[in-house]
Nucleic acid binder design. Structure first.
Lengths: 340, 340
DNA sequence: ATGAAAGCGCTAACAC
DNA sequence: GTGTTAGCGCTTTCAT
């Protein structure tokens, strides 16, 4: 907004037409196919030429004011310093930019009050829609949003709530793939490290794990750590796992994976000789680890892409059918699950 | 923008005053100290009460249109997936949010054409000011910005260009601290790994290194890797360093540090027994490395805070004196430089 | 096919 | 102290 641009009025004067006509001409340019307003081809060309010559850029503030929208969307994540989320954030921002939307970010740190606070601030700032990674106990807030007709897309985690779009991983499948692979590699005592938190994605990963282990004739055992005290908590959990004599571990999230491998490494437990490992999400942190760590890969790009498209669609068409989309995980092999 | 809010007009009607007066009352609220417009205390209170009762929120689009600004600033970094930069990005965004500014991000990938492209897009989008991490050969573009009176703050790297604010690390000092510390630990053949790129921060780190080594009676030797092919390039460099029999290495940037330690580790070179190491910037990647890596810490928070304040100041007061601020590095000890 | 006019919500001059 | 007026740049009836 730092410089005076050419306005529609200026173009109108120069073309000897009315501002309204300029607006029509300019907007029909992008209108694909059927012209909503019929403007003479020659006049249109003259107008477009002048616009281009002066490098005309519409004033967003004016347009937004008139159109009662901001072309801004809010993205609320659990923790933007987590690789999975920051990866999504980056891609959403990029794609949004291409679609001429701006993006606001916020982190809930798994705190529903903070979530509500951020939502309100974003709404005050006039966002047109929201992409949200819900945390525990956020059903209420989100349901209210949906009721108010605000475009919302839930990401990564499900929440009991109608009227919103959802983009989720097929978490059960993810866990099953991991367990299956560990079994193929001859592991029989497969433990899972998870969180105590009541989050749909984690619960589904646990479900997939449990079912899969039972199906393969094993005995499932889930160890749950504290989100708020992850380092210490995971260390204790890993001690327990070692004591119980597990020969494989599946981690439920990326932070658990990092802390878990760290703990094993510090304890001198050989991976995969003693304990095989499958992480959730890859991490640069594993780069310096002697054994390449196998992990479940989530399609970050698709998460970002799908979620963004859904909000935008909903913003531009409030009648949109609400959908829940499941994305497919991928098992990335690594020596950490190889039989030795 | 998704809901119809109470407007100034509504409040005016309800309070039985003119919209203008409401505006005055509302804006004076925040005006610290002297009221620019004198509005009767009682009327003011009545207005404020009504506003609060209806949870009045000013319409940003309207305000921006009227005030000819967007309250948006652009932040252009080298690579937002680099920890140092993403750390800054996060903090800038946070603080900006508090100051009621929105932030747009872009990455140049060290490409001056891309820098120019992003700058133009941001300008088209009406940013009020820019925070830029300049890349090689970007003097021209940036000088032009400054000439057009666009508020610009340069971050991390210096560029020959008047009329812009700068926030830089005292890079010479950083290198000197590292070399000094390595010397104290009995290292005498200290190598430095750097980039070929012509960037002020890197050059200053090299300068500090060279001077310091000479001062301490050693022989400086700088090995330069390719930014575009960092993994392979660093590996070669590390081979050369080993061949030359250095007993310590100082890395010039965080990506060099990570790749360097990775290379040493893969080669089986013991840290610090064989080679002591000082990294630039910490990294989670080192968490899984058996030896805690010593590193130069840059004050990320201050970078973000200072840069943001400078742009905002410049946006709100175009007469602002341009300054260059040097931030202090900190040497974080770690076993990687301990004499064994 | 084109134009006139109104108005989105806000603020700044300028009266009174 | 308070109100009036005008207008930021754009879109959109409604007329012509």
């Amino acid at each position: 907004m730092v410089e005076k641009h050419y306005t529609i009025k200026d173009i109108a004067r120069e073309a000897g037409v009315s501002p309204a006509l300029v607006s029509f001409a300019l907007n029909n340019k992008s209108e694909n196919g059927s012209m909503r307003y019929k403007v003479n081809k020659d006049t249109a060309k003259r107008i477009l030429d002048i616009a281009k010559a002066h490098n005309y850029k519409p004033n967003n503030a004016a347009r937004n004011l008139r159109l009662r929208r901001s072309r801004t969307i809010g993205v609320i994540l659990s923790d933007i310093s987590n690789d999975f989320f920051s990866g999504i954030a980056r891609r959403v921002e990029n794609e949004a930019f291409g679609a001429n939307y701006s993006v606001l970010f916020g982190s809930t740190d798994e705190n529903p009050e903070k979530l509500e606070l951020i939502i309100n601030t974003f709404l005050d700032n006039g966002v047109d829609g929201l992409i949200i990674v819900p945390c525990e106990n956020s059903e209420g807030v989100i349901a209210r949003l949906a009721k108010r007709g605000i475009p919302v897309v839930l990401l990564d985690r499900d929440v009991e709530c109608p009227g919103v779009n959802k983009v989720l991983l097929d978490n059960e499948l993810a866990a099953k793939m991991a367990v299956g692979r560990l079994r193929e590699n001859g592991r029989s005592k497969i433990a899972m490290v998870s969180y105590k938190m009541e989050l749909s994605n984690i619960r589904h990963r646990e479900k997939g794990y449990t079912e899969s282990v039972i199906e393969l004739g094993g005995v499932p055992k889930i160890y749950r750590a504290d989100y708020s005290n992850i380092e210490v908590s995971v260390r204790e959990v890993m001690d327990a796992i070692e004591a119980d004599g597990a020969d494989a571990v599946l981690f439920a999230t990326n932070s658990l994976s990092v802390e878990g491998v760290k703990a094993l490494s510090r304890k001198g437990v050989a991976i995969p000789e003693k304990v095989a490992v499958v992480a959730f999400d890859g991490s640069e942190v594993f780069d310096l680890f002697p054994t390449p760590i196998a992990y479940i890969r989530q399609p970050i790009e698709e998460f970002a892409h799908t979620a963004l498209n859904l909000v935008i669609e909903q913003i531009e068409n409030s009648e949109q059918e609400k959908v829940t989309i499941f994305l497919n995980p991928e098992l990335m092999d690594g020596e950490s699950l190889v039989l030795k």
